[in-house]
Amino acid sequence: MTQIICITCPKGCHLQVDEENDFRVTGNNCPRGETYGKNELQNPVRTLTSTVRLTGARTPRLPVKSSAPLPKGRIFDAMRLLDEVSVAAPVRCGQILLPDVFGTGVDIVATKSFDAAQS
């Protein structure tokens, strides 16, 4: 039995998840808590947001995100991948910068558009 707090909404239900009983969830006030509780113990995922190097724009960092949640255990590996990424302006919001990270089908995409800076 594991105690976790549901993060699906601000209510923050305290869930008990029973690993030995097909990950049965109790303490949830809505069905979303059950889904969260089952996933969180079997395959926890998080959306990654960070920045990558940006050249030729007014500021030096481009905000990015994973297009879908990544396995929680691969978040720091993904951060290391981002260290190597450098993008030259112009860039558009939604542009794919790194496709199919770790074979998960999840892309790293830009979350802001930048025009090339006027020199």
């Binding site: 707090i5 993060i7 601000p10 923050g12």
Partner: peptide, 8 residues
């Protein structure tokens, strides 16, 4: 802060 932020 919001509970979800404490957790994540």
């Amino acid at each position: 802060g919001l509970t979800r932020n404490i957790v994540q």
